[in-house]
Design a protein around this nucleic acid. Structure first.
Length: 232
DNA sequence: GCGACAG
DNA sequence: ATCTTGTCGC
């Protein structure tokens, strides 16, 4: 994604957990849960982060990667990795404050026109309806979906065993995502809306990006890129 | 008060 | 997420 000349200014990241929660409540109101008219993504970016064990004496860092995947060509058309000092602890529900700063730099540094983003975490399937995917979506303005490997909040019944089978992920009486079988007989992933998408579109995006493996191809590539960037 | 808890 | 030994399957 090419950095826009006049993007909305980003907020600060050096917040206390308490301030972070307050910010989430504010930004949650900006999430749009409907898809753009005629939404037909061609290039989807997968983003991921890793945390190399700190070398004795040095500070912890976060390695983030963004990979642009062309759905039509089935090929990587852009990639970017960044390393930044780690400034926030892992707190369930506040993952974006740990990963998003680096992820956003990798994403905005991508030299390709991104149509949508898939983050490895939740979107609306979050205690305050503002998971990592929402944060990335709202700050970039891009349609975004969350694709997590395990649940943070909500309950679900096991979906059918074939690829594409899905059941609702429900939290406090509302459907916040879907348990989706991306591969026959393999444990489901949890898809939720990040921004500018409805749940069906998010599910379709994940299925369209998953070449038969459990995780979407863009996400796998981003994970692989992080692994490669870890030791450098 | 006791569990649960994305990555 | 990261660490970490052995084990199972293609």
């Amino acid at each position: 994604m090419r950095a826009e000349p006049d993007r909305a200014p980003v907020h600060r990241w050096d917040l206390s957990p308490r301030e972070a929660i307050r910010l989430q409540r504010e930004l949650a109101a900006r999430v749009e849960a409907s898809s753009p008219r005629g939404f037909a993504p061609r290039i989807v970016a997968g983003v991921d982060a890793a945390f190399p064990r700190p070398r004795p004496g040095s500070a912890r860092q976060v390695v983030a990667a963004a990979v642009a995947w062309d759905l039509e060509a089935g090929a990587v058309v852009g990639m970017r990795t960044v390393r930044r000092p780690l400034t926030f602890p892992y707190v369930p529900g506040l993952l974006s404050f740990r990963e998003a700063p680096a992820v956003l730099e990798a994403l905005t540094g991508l030299d390709a026109p991104v149509d949508a983003v898939i983050a490895d975490g939740h979107g609306l399937a979050h205690p305050r309806r503002f998971g990592l995917a929402c944060h990335i979506g709202v700050l970039t303005g891009l349609p975004a979906a969350g694709c997590a490997k395990s649940v943070l909040v909500g309950r679900f019944d096991p979906p059918g065993l074939e690829r594409g089978a899905r059941t609702p992920l429900v939290h406090r009486g509302e459907t916040v995502g879907a348990a989706l079988r991306t591969r026959t007989r393999v444990s489901p992933v949890f898809v939720s809306v990040g921004h500018r998408l409805d749940l069906d579109a998010a599910v379709r995006l994940v299925l369209a990006s998953g070449g038969g493996l459990r995780l979407p191809e863009p996400t796998r590539r981003a994970d692989r890129a992080c692994a490669a960037a870890r030791r450098e």
